[in-house]
């Protein structure tokens, strides 16, 4: 092959680089699909955030954010969820290395911190309802309970999924399809923490300081 022909072939292959080589592998497809699903979940939360932002002043003569929110408890919740997310990251590394013990342990830690978070949130909700500040009290409280409760519901369903995942690894081992589900679970769990960042800022901090 002459030099020019080789150069031509090389430039040709460079030009072809971004061209498409056919269907992606299953891990990419599954991860991407779940990623799109998560974006749709973000939009659900966006609607609830919008409702909260519009209704936050409609206290109907009842208590407002200043009187209700206890930032210390929120800070502890935030910490618990953050550690839970971290443990979930460790679990996906353990899964990647096919270490069953590591995976179970990390998932268990994830679950414990998730449970702490849920416990604190339920405790907060009970306290509000006790004070007569339940979701039926005002538009503000309806929006608050729905937005924060929807996040809590996601965490609860995530816990159900978490234990199902542990059972799957126990029964089937680190098969490819199980690995893909672990990837989706960790995406889900991390995404919930991102939404929580929005909640503690826009609901609690804005509520108390603005």
């Amino acid at each position: 092959m002459s030099a020019t022909a080789a150069a031509h072939a090389a430039s040709h292959s460079v030009a072809r680089m971004p061209s498409h080589t056919g269907p992606a592998n299953k891990r990419i497809v599954t991860g991407y699909g779940f990623w799109i699903f998560l974006l749709s979940d973000f939009v659900i939360f966006a609607s609830l955030f919008a409702a909260f932002a519009v209704l936050v002043h409609n206290t109907n003569g009842g208590p407002g954010p200043h009187e209700l929110f206890d930032l210390k408890s929120v800070a502890v919740e935030t910490g618990a969820l953050l550690l839970s997310t971290y443990a979930c990251g460790l679990a996906s590394i353990a899964a990647h290395r096919r270490s069953a013990i590591g995976f179970y342990l990390a998932m268990l830690v994830t679950a414990i911190f998730g449970a702490v978070f849920l416990g604190l949130e339920i405790n907060e909700f009970y306290g509000f309802i006790d004070k007569g500040a339940g979701p039926q009290r005002s538009g503000f409280l309806s929006a608050f309970f729905t937005l924060v409760g929807c996040h809590g519901l996601h965490v609860s369903l995530g816990m159900l999924w978490l234990f199902t995942m542990i059972a799957q690894v126990f029964a089937k081992g680190f098969r490819d399809d199980i690995q893909r589900r672990i990837l989706c679970f960790s995406l889900f769990w991390h995404a919930l923490d991102i939404i929580w960042v929005g909640i503690f800022t826009a609901v609690y901090l804005y509520g108390v300081y603005l």
Partner: peptide, 22 residues
């Protein structure tokens, strides 16, 4: 867009079933 519908109808259902005030 469909998640917005889901969320909105969920709020209406909360109003109807649990007496919320959306």
């Amino acid at each position: 867009a469909f998640p917005v519908l889901t969320a909105t109808l969920a709020m209406l259902l909360l109003d109807r079933y649990l007496g919320f005030h959306f």
